[in-house]
Design a protein around this nucleic acid. Sequence first.
DNA 1: GCTTGACTAGGACGTTCGTCCTAGTCAAGC
DNA 2: GCTTGACTAGGACGAACGTCCTAGTCAAGC
Lengths: 221, 221
Amino acid sequence: MARMTGGTGRTAGDTRQRGTGQRDTRQRMVVAAAQLLRERGYDGTGCRDVVARARAARGAIYHHFPGGKTEIGIEAARWAGGLVAERVERACAEAHPREGVRAVLELADRLLIRADGPAGCPVAAVTLSAEDPDGALRAAANEIFGRWRAAIAGCLARAGVDAQRAARFAAVTVAGIEGTVLLCRASGDVEPYQAVRAGLLDQLDLLLGSLPGPAEPETGL
Amino acid sequence: MARMTGGTGRTAGDTRQRGTGQRDTRQRMVVAAAQLLRERGYDGTGCRDVVARARAARGAIYHHFPGGKTEIGIEAARWAGGLVAERVERACAEAHPREGVRAVLELADRLLIRADGPAGCPVAAVTLSAEDPDGALRAAANEIFGRWRAAIAGCLARAGVDAQRAARFAAVTVAGIEGTVLLCRASGDVEPYQAVRAGLLDQLDLLLGSLPGPAEPETGL
DNA sequence: GCTTGACTAGGACGTTCGTCCTAGTCAAGC
DNA sequence: GCTTGACTAGGACGAACGTCCTAGTCAAGC
């Protein structure tokens, strides 16, 4: 009733593109869903919450997402997780592992832990949905986690770490970050993050220091 | 309707202790709640589900838990998490870190990952509840995580690892385990667990191998 | 100027939720 | 044998859920 903007649907300054439809309503819903998943989880987020935060109409749910709540969840996890994956991949592509892992930890801190509201991760949220009949939610999450792991493992392997060990360290890093988000939500502060961050960097140094070949091979600039 | 045991309330062989009330109804509810939290999360678990699995009456909810769903959640997380904490503390008390950490990983595998149904953790579940007005759920979870971390850190410190480093490794281990549970739920198999387990043991070896003093102090037996 | 299609606005549906409530059942203790 | 108290059994409550639905609004294109 007391909605502040939007009013009867569209305001004077509206700049929607002709004919193609108001494409950004869909995107606003995806972003709102990702935020809500992070804050309240999948089962704690209602479709009404999503449209309310996105300032969209309830009818927009099935107009833009015929698959209903499940489709919104998948889309939101893919969008948020993919955005992180792109940044992780970019940070890891040409950096030394120490810088790459540091950048990954920095991203987790900014996007998952110290963001508005309690710590949380939209990808974790869809993974933990109570119902997922055909496994579509978990499959989407699994794909995202795989991208994160592959990017980090590639970064280490390129620096001369044995591929198996690199893959294991990447798994520990991704699992450690997701676990840290959880611990930070439980504690309400960033202490667990600081401990895990330091612990992962400790261990990365040991791993890099134990390289059989040249201690720090130049990986091309 | 087709309830198998209990019938009209109590069967012939019932051995409830006189006067004190049927104490194990409460315990059955706690166990059922812990299982359901692991499988479906806090927001995905209803009070009706709990009493149904515990073969208890709906009226038993507020008879045994005046605080309602929140109190059941806290109790279940405390029970399940405390049980794990006791085992972790026992495994870490007198063992070499390698054995202690191995035992912790083994526990996680058996209780959180390869248990019936999808991978999950009741303590994580209450941490991720959508609503937690006075923070009671998260406080209970935080206490459990603290016990796990302290037990592992103590094990390493007793073996000669610098206290700070030991605490960090413990944080990585607990966060890594919780994250692994998540990754295993997403993937539907135990591959992430195997990678994280190997990665943590890799790094423990590096940590122990870099000890300044005697490489592997005999800690009795 | 009328049609068309994208989108808004929100009522209505059946279900499930947490919670509260009363009635009934059984065993213990006087 | 009656009272008492622990516990069962399940109806009732208002709220919220996902979903479907119709009516209304606006801009583009004929």
